[in-house]
Amino acid sequence: MILAKALVKEYTLGGVIVRALDDVSIEIRDGEMVAITGSSGSGKSTLMNILGCLDRPDSGSYELAGEDVAKLSTDRLAEIRNIRIGFVFQSFNLLPRMSALENVELPLLYQGDRQARAKAKAALETVGLFDRMHHEPNQLSGGQRQRVAVARAIVTNPAIILADEPTGNLDSKTGKEILALFEDLNAKGHTIIVVTHDPGVASRCKRQIHLRDGHVVNEPLGAAANPVTEEKG
């Protein structure tokens, strides 16, 4: 459950104060698959950073699974990113010189999980790359790399998967495969938030949140387009 109220975030760019988010309120229930769309400069990256606990809002409140994370310490935010959120990036962002398996088990190692290896293998099996687990990123295709990134995102079994233009660097066929993977994960109960400017990708999601100039348009607080009744366990 994501509950953000009246988020404000400002930047100073060349002496001018830019309000990237201006009074943004969003509610995303567990198990939803949501697209956040908007042109560049609309504030969607800023929103994603705050939703992903990479950044803190200047004002407003943000509750994640009942916990107000707006004012937590840097270390506690790192823990929340580690446990509750899985990131998938446009440019994959796998670590070089580490095998697929080592990349996937890394989030668990930061937790000190003793079953890291077994869980990482299971996650790679979920994305269909069990036979490539000892390959390093530069030995994998773009689609395979993004699958490894998805495996890394789900290995801690987070409630939310936050994807930033996940198909932006892929051809349309592999892009569709990745989206299908997200739909599978959504069916298993993960909340999926996809940040994109591609209408084709956005249309695959059950609900869209549009941002323009730091405001949410056509998305009043609490009005979920497709309310999900079943709660994720």
Binding site: L54, R81, F87, F89, L106, Y110, Q111
Partner: peptide
């Protein structure tokens, strides 16, 4: 730098 960003995004604390 980018690698450090990725590590932090997936849950590395400053001390890691």
């Amino acid at each position: 730098t980018r690698e450090i960003g990725v590590r932090k995004a997936i849950g590395a604390k400053n001390r890691h």
